[in-house]
Design a protein around this nucleic acid. Sequence first.
RNA 1: GCGCCCAUAGCUCAGCUGGAUAGAGCGACGGUUUGCGGAACCGUAGGUCAGAGGUUCGAGUCCUCUUGGGCGCACCA
Length: 554
Amino acid sequence: MKQSLKELVCLALEEAKTQGHLTLDPPPEVVIEEPKDETMGDFATTVAMSLAKSEKKNPRKIAESLLDSLKSRPELVAEVEIAGPGFINFRLARGFMRQQFMDAVNQGERFGRSEVGKRTRVLLEFVSANPTGPLHVGHGRGAAVGDCLSRLMDWAGFDVSKEYYINDVGNQMNNLGRSTQLRYQQELGRKVTFPDDLYQGDYINDIARTVIEKDGDRHLNSDDEDSLGFFRKITSDTILDGIKNDLKQFRVEYDQWFSEQTLHESNKVEGAIAWLRDKGHVYDKDGATWLKSSAFKDEKDRVVVKQGGEKTYFCADIAYHQQKIERGYDVILDLWGADHHGYVARMEAVLEALEHGDGGFQVLLIQFVSLKRGGEKVQMSTRSGKFVTLADVVNEVGVDATRFFFLMRSSDSHLDFDLELAKSETQENPVYYIQYAHARICSLFRTAEENGMPPCDANSVNLGRLDQEEDFSLIKKCLLFPELIGKSALSREVHRISYFLQELVAQFHRYYSVHRVVSEDQELTQARLLLLELVRSVIANGLKIMGVSAPEKM
RNA sequence: GCGCCCAUAGCUCAGCUGGAUAGAGCGACGGUUUGCGGAACCGUAGGUCAGAGGUUCGAGUCCUCUUGGGCGCACCA
């Protein structure tokens, strides 16, 4: 819709140039926007104002020189006028809008899809929480955003793969195994001290008890080291299963689960360092091995192999990202918690050293969630193990509301998550506002059918009966959906979907209160039902991208 | 000390590449239904866009500084 207008404007500019009215040096960027006030028209362009400087002409004069060509397509644009300092306002031809409307209706559940992503191959890594405990609310936000972003980008024509990186290597794994081992011994009555730096959470005790149920005290007397290996494995396996299950309950599915351990086992880590050393990006100093990351944008060099010969976490991460490149992804997209922002520069340095093209690596930081209950802050502390888990929140408020709340705010803003609000099935909850609209439209279809007006073939509907201002503004809103999806995908901003849906739904409810849909007038009823079918599919498609259900009844 | 993010209505937040009179939800106050779902709709009140400079036809949006908050600055993962 906007595209057709843009082409028209470009054509008009060219014509003005050949006629000598404009020089178009440098060529302007044509922006089509929606006026704040609908009485000013359907769309507007600011191109005359942005040209004023380079053309050294009054913007209104420039607009006037374009006017004739802009009026040359009455089947597309019904009215053109110059307003204010030099805005050019357009009123679209109603026939054109009806035609666009039919296209959209015919696309149905695919309406909103586009190819702006040009099938670019994207690897989206998100959550990747260490398997040392259950997922908490912060991870939940990452999960919701990552999952939604993957679908959003898929709709916009990207080829997206979702991946979870499992940090199943290192000292933390020993601590984890040790924690369960000690709890196991305690449960069986042995007096042992439990150090503060081990994992304190109740889930460790649960695992210890499970081991007792299965194996009794068999691990009590076996060699400490062997036994530690056993506890390490059973603990991390159990926790990882729990994480997978939590994510599944939250409707988040991955394409790949990538284990850090496999990198070490296949010597990819050494390989990566050797590769970088070959390129001169790695050197030895003070008995350690360093990445010359300061040669790129990082503030200083970083250790990859410690003095004792042990590899750092960072070292494995280098190999991991080299793997991502080798697997042929054009865009490597990492979603991290905001507390990792200090890590961004060095990772960018790595990707540059690995010669992955400009713009091919992007980190999205997700800000913190503060949990509230009726305005009161809920305390969360990882150290004591007493944090609110994602599963707790989902159990309390449900998947739909939880996902929606995580997705309704810009990711780079802190999020206040009020449990009471999310749970409330009242007017103050935006999730239900949108779902209610969907259910209400479905109810209208049911009512029509009961009155002997089942849905008919879209092509036999008389669209001429859609002739009210409210019809067109509702149509226009729906037609903006594909552009919204494309833009949000390109800017990786998932929150814009929920805002769009709230606006659309508000417009629908208003429409509903002004215009009777199911009436004696069959022709009019069918026309309006078709309009609402488009509204319904936009709501359904939007919610689908968010991973929120669109109920037919509630 | 250095760096990243944030600051818009009483509260929670939108505001896309700078554009017309700064918006929404909630809360407050007032109204709407004997016809399709009132989980809805309409109206009123509420703003020095943290502050100060600057860039320009035009700044909530870009630049600099200040203030206030969050987070990070490991041979941890």
